[in-house]
Design a binder for these strands. Structure first.
Lengths: 168, 168
DNA sequence: CTTGGAAAGTCAACAACACTGACATAAAAC
DNA sequence: GTTTTATGTCAGTGTTGTTGACTTTCCAAG
């Protein structure tokens, strides 16, 4: 990777369009691999990727409100509602009316919801673990750093809110 | 990052579910950022992400056949056909009957196709460049390594076929 | 205490883009 | 000359996004 030090000590990167394009394609192909395993499982349950995302974030923050989920997922409430409706009808998610504010719905996974989320999550984690193993520890650190730098600032907040239990 | 050396010299990584889940979320949020800029541009042209992907790979390999594009993009011919027809009708892509094999159609960008692809590509490259700059050279290397390890083997072939002009 | 606006969620209709299945045409391969 | 391959098309379906219109609930200003 071409880089030099300026007199001031700052590292400059000279990136050709070709190198950047390669990174773009890597994102494209990798994302396909990233979603492939869960997609296969979801098919059996007649659910889609949107359901997976909802399950994931509800699992991570049980009791979260619809509104909070909306801002994380970045879709319209109508779109999310259809997804939640399916999950609730399928008995995977439970929606409890808020006690403090009755307009809010707090979302929880049911036992079967937890089971499915685990199944999906495990498949995806195994892919990730495999990739991490193959690439090595320094690569993993770089991977995470670049991904974070690629996020919109608002999404980065969401990302950093669900705090890491400190491995770095 | 926790890692140790085995007596044999192999590096082992001990990855918690939490660390892996964090990587999963990073992919999710980063991919959103990754597509955000092109999506905005595409909206003005009333095109979608599928059109962008087609433009990208035609630009990358001018004269490519429909079949080749199909295997890269991993969609059905019916799906790709709808996209290509729009692009051809909009005068962005030209389809030429093959000379050696007249069953094949070779795909090329028109001048306006090249212009749009450039516009999209530039926006996406700028995001990537920004992220690379922010993360630094070692991070970029790791980023690419992990992404490649995450791909399905078949897709990895496609990725490596469009060869890099040697920066590593 | 009432009223009016904001917030949360729901219902209906529509669009983009993926899918399957069936079929047509032309050219190449055997 | 039959089969296979490459491409295109038509019809139908599903997921996931969109907007617009609506109800219920909450809260705060009068």
């Amino acid at each position: 990777m071409a880089d030099t030090q300026t007199p001031g000590g700052q590292t400059l990167l000279f990136l050709t369009d070709e190198q950047l394009r390669k990174g773009i394609e890597a994102m494209f192909f990798a994302y396909r691999g990233f979603t492939a395993d869960p997609d296969r499982i979801l098919e059996e349950y007649r659910l889609g990727r949107a359901h997976h995302r909802a399950l994931h974030f509800i699992s991570r923050a049980p009791g979260t409100t619809v509104n909070n989920l909306l801002s994380i997922l970045g879709v319209t409430k109508q779109s999310l509602n259809r997804v939640l409706r399916t999950l609730i009808d399928d008995g995977l998610v439970e929606s409890r009316v808020g006690t403090r504010d009755k307009r809010e719905r707090h979302l929880f996974l049911t036992d079967s919801g937890i089971a499915l989320e685990q199944e999906l999550s495990t498949a995806q984690r195994e892919r990730m673990r495999q990739a991490y193993r193959e690439a090595g520890p320094e690569a993993v650190q770089g991977f995470r750093t670049v991904l974070e730098a690629m996020m919109d600032p608002e999404l980065r907040q969401h990302f950093n809110r669900g705090r890491d239990s400190g491995d770095e």
